[in-house]
Write a protein that binds this DNA or RNA. Sequence first.
RNA 1: CGGGGAGUGGCGCAGCCCGGUUAGCGCGCCGCGUUCGGGACGCGGAGGUCGGAGGUUCAAAUCCUCUCUCCCCGACCA
Length: 479
Amino acid sequence: MTDERKFVEEIPDWEDDFDRWYVEVVQKAELTDDSPVRGTKVIRPYGFALWENMQRELDRRIKETGVENAYFPLFIPKSMLEREAEHIEGFAPEVAWVTRGGNKELEEPWAVRPTSEAIICPMYARWVQSYRDLPILINQWANVVRWEERPRAFLRSLEFLWQEGHTAHATLEEAEERARQMLGVYQDFVQTELAIPVIPGQKTEAEKFAGALRTYTIEAMMGGKKWALQSATSHNLGDHFGRVFDIQFLDAQGQRQFAFNTSWGLSFRTIGAIIMVHGDSRGLKLPPRVAPIHVVIVPIRRSEAVDDAVDRVRDLLRPAARVFVDRREDKTPGFKFNEWELKGIPIRLEIGPRDVAKDQVTLVRRDTSERENVSIASLQTAIPAILAEIQANLFSAAKRMLDENTKLVTTYDELKQRVEANAGFNLAYWCGNPQCEARIKAETHATIRCIPFQQPGEPGQCILCGNESTVVALFARAY
RNA sequence: CGGGGAGUGGCGCAGCCCGGUUAGCGCGCCGCGUUCGGGACGCGGAGGUCGGAGGUUCAAAUCCUCUCUCCCCGACCA
């Protein structure tokens, strides 16, 4: 079912008011609808189909690294969540609690998981006795709850969907390798499937995951205000959790050791990234590899001959492409064109009497708006090629945006001005002092998104204090 | 959590300040017909008790109190 409202006429101009544009597009493209519960959205079938496609591709990649899926409880007893001090300190402000079950007050409140380290690690403790039990490589697809004060569809909601991987290893080196490996998986997934270029790097002490030894991240640049979106993170937890949850084992020398852990997650906020990176004034542009529908066929001036051609083309393209035929008779072609463009379908095929006469279709690309006539005979090879082209095109357009709006800044004034002007990403030398980081954040609203892995290699001066430094940090405002 | 804005048929709004007939308008929706290559048209219909609760009053969409939700800005965050 589709909604019968007017669409593109109603969404605000993309440049004009990007925040409103986002809200309206999410709603009108039927990705989500408001729910009666504050800070939560209903994910509608079209939005969920997109998520399912993303899940499938990411799940495959995760499993290829030897990880298995499992499922752990939604609830975490208070005492368990509080075991790791930094962890609970970081999450305390956003944890939802269950204090009553049925008619009884609980003796010990249960947290609704904001993340699952505190329930998974105790299980690992039961499962690990020997170094031969390691590594444990488990992922779960789950919902988590974080009591956010200012929700935003997909980007920040009280409840969100994600996958969280949790591993346990015999050595720190192995955990480090796994944390890095999974960041690479995320980078590949986001760039290949979602057509979004990212900057991989390491979080600062101030920005890292609560309880982690080190946090790695991929950061993407959104359209509109050119803010950063942390698209996935991967943590080397060191032995912090192994110690507090008592994941002990005997190594090959018969020595007691604590296990080393990692955790890593990617949430459906990356749907928000797809919307903001690729979208335009007409609405969504979905990357073909995850789009719920690749090709929409709009019959024009339906007749038996037109219907036959439509069926023939549909059968020809299936199952290689996800095809949908819009047969609604009460909607004009123009209406359908706009609606499907809003929903971001990569390719539209128009089939009318003129096409039938020439044994062709009229093909329109969502990414370039180009219109061309394609013979039905060549469609079977043309469509997959064009889908691949669109995927590549979306990526290169996004890459261009990222590159053109990323600058190495050398003065604090310039940094301030660029952040103020929503000019994009700023690379700047940073001395490593948390006080400089904090002051820049307070004065500009820009945070260090990461220390990019790719570094210039030459020394420079800290953007704030001027001290000698070899480290370039990525400064930007973030969602 | 601080500041601002808003909740009236499915959507977008008017009415509210200066309480008073059957709460209007546009779009959408249903039926019939004509249409169909960038958001069609005609005719005929259906649909709301004004976010929720309480109060003031002869009388409340309109005034008062409380409350819920949404949007924007800020602090915080995947």
